[in-house]
Simulated scan of single mutants.
Amino acid sequence: MAQALPKPALRPLLPADVPMLAAIFVAAIQELTGDDYSEPQQEAWAAVADDEVAFGKKLAGELTLIATIQNSPVGFASLRNNDHIDMLYVHPSVAGQGVGAMLCDALEKLAGARGTKSLSVDASDNALEFFRKRGYVAKQRNSVTVQGEWLANTTMQKTLGAAAGGAS
């Protein structure tokens, strides 16, 4: 008989989470983005977490939620200025199991409750379909430099409010 997976839970960021979130960030980039980004691009992107103090300050300066399974962090998402999903990363071991959707649902609800009319995200190429399925619409293609490497992403936007309700 198949065993049910433990249900993920959400909680706010704690300072002690930063090393684990940095590890999730790196693992997600290394293991989930290889079809869309070269190894040098992945290494440059993942290097953002090398300075854990700066990484922690960035997360603490935004509304950051942690997804946990049996009290262990398995993903995180952060909302900047109530209207932009800045980060959304899940550990490869739970990719495709609804953790990212749960984090995104929570940020959309929080942003909507704070009066935000639309939410934007600069989606990596591997995250485009995830956001498209959630009702985000591509607005513009971007090239950003990270640690000397060029990475492409797409700014996407979703209107919140009445149209977003009922999709829980």
Rank of each mutant, 00 (worst) to 15 (best):
160 L>R: 11
54 A>I: 05
33 T>G: 09
81 N>E: 12
141 R>P: 14
34 G>F: 00
32 L>D: 11
165 G>W: 04
88 L>M: 08
125 D>R: 14
16 A>S: 13
60 A>F: 03
95 A>E: 07
95 A>T: 03
92 P>A: 00
112 G>W: 12
87 M>E: 06
16 A>V: 07
72 S>K: 10
121 V>E: 05
78 S>Q: 01
85 I>N: 00
6 P>W: 10
124 S>P: 10
50 D>V: 03
90 V>A: 08
142 N>W: 10
23 A>M: 09
31 E>L: 04
158 K>A: 04
118 S>I: 11
20 M>I: 03
159 T>R: 08
38 S>N: 04
58 K>L: 12
56 G>W: 08
39 E>P: 00
107 L>F: 01
167 A>E: 14
124 S>H: 02
83 D>C: 06
5 L>F: 07
108 E>R: 00
161 G>I: 04
164 A>M: 08
52 E>T: 15
14 L>M: 07
78 S>I: 02
158 K>T: 11
166 G>T: 10
31 E>V: 02
36 D>E: 15
11 R>V: 02
41 Q>I: 00
130 F>T: 02
70 Q>P: 14
48 V>A: 15
113 A>E: 15
60 A>H: 09
166 G>M: 15
3 Q>R: 07
105 D>Q: 08
71 N>Q: 13
114 R>G: 08
61 G>V: 02
102 M>R: 00
2 A>K: 12
164 A>V: 11
165 G>Q: 15
153 N>L: 01
69 I>C: 14
138 A>D: 07
112 G>T: 05
126 N>T: 06
60 A>G: 10
110 L>P: 01
134 R>W: 05
168 S>E: 13
124 S>L: 08
84 H>N: 04
118 S>R: 13
108 E>W: 00
60 A>E: 15
138 A>W: 13
150 W>I: 15
133 K>W: 04
11 R>L: 04
96 G>N: 14
154 T>K: 01
120 S>E: 11
101 A>C: 06
19 P>I: 05
10 L>K: 00
92 P>Y: 11
108 E>T: 00
11 R>P: 05
121 V>W: 07
145 T>W: 15
109 K>E: 12
153 N>M: 10
160 L>C: 06
90 V>C: 11
32 L>F: 06
129 E>H: 14
159 T>S: 14
26 V>S: 07
17 D>N: 12
125 D>H: 13
129 E>R: 12
34 G>K: 00
59 L>V: 03
148 G>S: 04
9 A>K: 15
83 D>Y: 03
55 F>Q: 13
138 A>Q: 09
104 C>G: 01
111 A>S: 05
98 G>Q: 01
144 V>I: 13
127 A>V: 02
7 K>V: 06
48 V>D: 08
69 I>Q: 15
66 I>H: 02
118 S>Y: 15
20 M>L: 15
66 I>L: 02
141 R>G: 06
114 R>N: 13
82 N>C: 03
34 G>V: 02
124 S>C: 05
66 I>M: 04
89 Y>E: 11
26 V>E: 09
119 L>Y: 13
138 A>C: 12
75 G>V: 04
105 D>A: 04
50 D>A: 11
1 M>H: 13
133 K>S: 10
69 I>N: 12
116 T>Q: 12
143 S>W: 09
44 A>K: 03
46 A>L: 09
126 N>D: 13
123 A>C: 02
3 Q>D: 09
110 L>H: 03
139 K>I: 11
124 S>V: 12
15 P>F: 04
152 A>G: 08
148 G>Y: 03
131 F>E: 07
124 S>Q: 01
